[in-house]
Simulated scan of single mutants.
Amino acid sequence: MCTGKCSRCIAISLYPLAVISIICNIVLFFPDGDVKYAKDGHITEEVKYMGGLVGGGIMVLLPAFYIHLSGSQGCCGNRCGMFLSIAFAAVGVLGALYSFIVSVLGLHNGPLCKIGVFWETPFKTMEQNYLTDDKWWKLCTEPENIVQFNIGLFATLLATSSLQIILCAIQMINGLFGCLCGTCIDKGPL
């Protein structure tokens, strides 16, 4: 496969991953489908870092547009364009890495939830692993099913950011080959 076609495939794969990251991060602001938790500030701290929106979303989506252009014929589909795609892919790696780290922290610390009358993050200091032992989940009385909600969305962000890191790293290697060897785009009949 030539470097231009590889760039287009990578970019097309990055688009849905970025959209999924953005959607997951937005949904995390509304536990139990209610805006009252966001209004009252009862949102898990890692959600406020916006790893999926900024890191896995915007910081991956913008490079994906350029990477797509670098695989097309035209001003970006040349050696210089492929060289610049390395820098854009590096931005994508950094954004996806940010999303990955925030997701890991979100899973490790657990959700902010109501226990009795207080709002706290009960799993943050717990020695037992709440991810594998669901008997601890009933500690959180409000929002309903907040533990499953956070685990599902942060795990999705973790998976998408992992794929984004891999794809952007592949594009960095692909961009290097495209810079050194050219994009092998068919110029048509002369």
Rank of each mutant, 00 (worst) to 15 (best):
residue 79 R to D: 09
residue 87 A to Y: 07
residue 42 H to S: 03
residue 55 G to L: 05
residue 53 L to I: 02
residue 99 S to H: 09
residue 136 W to Q: 13
residue 102 V to W: 09
residue 57 G to L: 05
residue 135 K to T: 15
residue 20 I to R: 02
residue 43 I to W: 01
residue 61 L to V: 03
residue 139 L to H: 10
residue 42 H to P: 01
residue 30 F to K: 07
residue 29 F to W: 10
residue 148 Q to D: 15
residue 68 H to V: 00
residue 57 G to E: 07
residue 12 I to R: 07
residue 65 F to S: 03
residue 127 E to N: 15
residue 151 I to T: 14
residue 112 L to I: 08
residue 54 V to L: 15
residue 138 K to N: 05
residue 55 G to Q: 01
residue 107 L to W: 09
residue 73 Q to M: 04
residue 57 G to N: 04
residue 122 P to C: 11
residue 62 L to T: 13
residue 87 A to F: 14
residue 41 G to N: 06
residue 66 Y to P: 07
residue 96 A to K: 04
residue 81 G to N: 07
residue 47 V to R: 01
residue 57 G to Y: 06
residue 44 T to C: 11
residue 65 F to E: 02
residue 150 N to G: 11
residue 36 K to H: 05
residue 84 L to N: 15
residue 150 N to W: 09
residue 95 G to H: 13
residue 72 S to V: 02
residue 59 M to N: 02
residue 95 G to W: 15
residue 136 W to N: 14
residue 59 M to H: 00
residue 70 S to P: 13
residue 115 I to M: 09
residue 25 N to F: 01
residue 88 F to A: 12
residue 125 T to C: 14
residue 91 V to D: 06
residue 15 Y to H: 06
residue 36 K to W: 01
residue 110 G to T: 09
residue 55 G to H: 01
residue 25 N to P: 02
residue 68 H to K: 08
residue 100 F to P: 02
residue 55 G to R: 00
residue 34 D to C: 04
residue 91 V to G: 04
residue 141 T to K: 08
residue 45 E to R: 10
residue 61 L to N: 00
residue 69 L to E: 10
residue 118 F to Q: 06
residue 108 H to R: 14
residue 151 I to G: 12
residue 18 A to R: 03
residue 88 F to L: 08
residue 118 F to G: 01
residue 87 A to P: 03
residue 33 G to T: 11
residue 112 L to R: 09
residue 66 Y to G: 05
residue 127 E to K: 13
residue 48 K to A: 05
residue 111 P to V: 13
residue 124 K to R: 15
residue 24 C to F: 04
residue 60 V to R: 00
residue 109 N to E: 14
residue 74 G to A: 11
residue 53 L to H: 00
residue 90 A to F: 12
residue 132 T to S: 10
residue 147 V to L: 09
residue 72 S to I: 00
residue 21 S to Q: 09
residue 53 L to D: 00
residue 70 S to R: 12
residue 29 F to T: 07
residue 72 S to C: 09
residue 101 I to W: 11
residue 151 I to L: 13
residue 71 G to R: 04
residue 54 V to S: 13
residue 86 I to F: 11
residue 116 G to M: 02
residue 50 M to F: 08
residue 61 L to Q: 00
residue 113 C to V: 10
residue 41 G to C: 06
residue 85 S to T: 08
residue 106 G to Q: 04
residue 78 N to I: 06
residue 103 S to Y: 05
residue 107 L to H: 07
residue 111 P to T: 14
residue 56 G to L: 07
residue 128 Q to E: 15
residue 24 C to M: 14
residue 17 L to M: 13
residue 88 F to W: 09
residue 37 Y to V: 03
residue 56 G to F: 12
residue 71 G to V: 04
